[in-house]
Design a binder for these strands. Sequence first.
DNA 1: CTGAAAGCGCTTACAG
DNA 2: CTGAAAGCGCTTACAG
Lengths: 337, 337
Amino acid sequence: MTGIDEVARAAGVSTTTVSRALSGRGRVSERTRERVRRAADELGYVGSAAAASLASGRTENVGVVAPLRGPWFFATVLDGIASRLTPRGYDLTLYHLGDDPEQRRGVFERSLRRQRVDGLIVLSVHLDDDEIARLGALGLPIVGLGVPRPELPALRVDDTAVGRLATAHLLALGHRDIAHIGQTLPPGASPELDIPSRRRRGFEAAMGDAGIARPRFAEADFTVAGARAAARELLTGPDRPTAIFAASDEMAYGVLAVAGELGLSVPRDLSVVGVDGHDLGELFGLTTIDQFPHGQGARAGDAILAALGVTEAAAAPLPFELVVRTSTAPPPRPGHP
Amino acid sequence: MTGIDEVARAAGVSTTTVSRALSGRGRVSERTRERVRRAADELGYVGSAAAASLASGRTENVGVVAPLRGPWFFATVLDGIASRLTPRGYDLTLYHLGDDPEQRRGVFERSLRRQRVDGLIVLSVHLDDDEIARLGALGLPIVGLGVPRPELPALRVDDTAVGRLATAHLLALGHRDIAHIGQTLPPGASPELDIPSRRRRGFEAAMGDAGIARPRFAEADFTVAGARAAARELLTGPDRPTAIFAASDEMAYGVLAVAGELGLSVPRDLSVVGVDGHDLGELFGLTTIDQFPHGQGARAGDAILAALGVTEAAAAPLPFELVVRTSTAPPPRPGHP
DNA sequence: CTGAAAGCGCTTACAG
DNA sequence: CTGAAAGCGCTTACAG
């Protein structure tokens, strides 16, 4: 690999000047800068990340701490993040929080502490107090995306409003007996910032406004299988609901599948709404609240670049939008099966 | 951040010895090693990645070059890779090949040349000659996964056998009029290692063995939308096939959707087979050839670690397996609609 | 605007 | 088995 001194020689300047000309930090005459650039291009010079970051303290690398919340959602957000970092010359190092608790500890105790990144994006995970403390001790700019901890500055969708919107759509169609399938809080977590809790709260608020006191709720984790079990119980029990609001699209798919197995026609016998904007939603005709995960990633990328002083900050709430497809319709009129 | 000299002072040894004790390179007495370890733990010392890699030339970081072939597949493979790298203390830096050609050039011309990684895993992309040359010039161990270039040592599924297996399953059920939906070769690519081309080849070989000379083929890209268009044409044309073998599960979902729209019952009127092992396949009752993408990622991780001398190599062909669900059945008997 | 020189925090021959 | 010292390839006060 060609080094900075070869470029300096070729351009007839010092390495100091090469460094300044190429990085844009410090003044260099336009003529010199041009000459250095040309020499660097001709030699195909690209600086060593290790040397530059050891000397400067900057890595031009952003870490992404991610759990495994459904491969689709995760990859879509990641794509959005990369779409912003790459054009600015920032690399992206992934810190994957897997299932293994020991591995997870290693990420917080070792991997993240190697000073490989200038900043961190933390994707929607439940973090315990120790993990929060360790993130803080890093002394790095951090942007959370849906992280349920007040300690981290985080981008969030207004999930209560999401829950309200989904429910309002069903209420407007005439449904009264609406059930919600969501995930209850992990032990020790606070409901204030927890996404499923907020969606549920929005659901209950909308139902309350419509005069329905204790609407039905079924617990399920964020998987198709979990939602299937919950849906089966709801739909085979006595007086089944006419509509189900599932806390995610993948959960909604589970509901659709169970409906099919039970011989219920959607939306004639049952309306279903999900949340996310999953890429197979159109295929299923699923009505959903799209939360634009790719855009969320892009926003998180923008936010960390702003925190690093690379770009200007631009705050705005994360958007979401009702997408009506064919899984929702007015409820069946009693006596007209 | 505490540095190596603080550990040295605390342990009463030189920084040389600390480095050796902690890295395991070079001899250190067991007593000393223990003392150093304890001191490092107490101080919470984690070495600077930049300093270590500048001095040693090693980064303990692996790059993953990835295209955007369906977020689900990509994320699942990535999870598999991370599951092997993390326990060995290796980090993972993602080089995302997006849609923008200029950004893509930047990855090959700059990002990858910053010496941030010890080795590279390249996920199934079509690379042009220039890109191949640039990868070679990096002088790094590289492991491909399904990369259609003979220049890169790559892990591959026997995709011809996959095509054969899917087709044989349908033939065994009694189907004769089977169509294949797949993707034709991008210009300039060779069919020898191209995955869709090989699947098609397997399809044609199996059909040929069954005495069917020119089986039907429809072109579509690897998306639901593409497959829908192709399926619509196949299924609305004169004498529609009794079975369709789609080159991926997501494409198969598109076929299922079109069948539903046309009022065809699966598997009574039409059998459908996909490839991948997509996580929603069970929901759809889709018969598929599972190629275990998570396991493929794990194997790629193992392979690059072996190439880096971290672990022993263990070669074996990538497995695949027919998973029969409810989307395939014998064809309808003529006259028995 | 430009350069000589120190220094970033490790690793590793080399010597003992 | 252990350590003093050079060096990895940049960046950046400091001086001019």
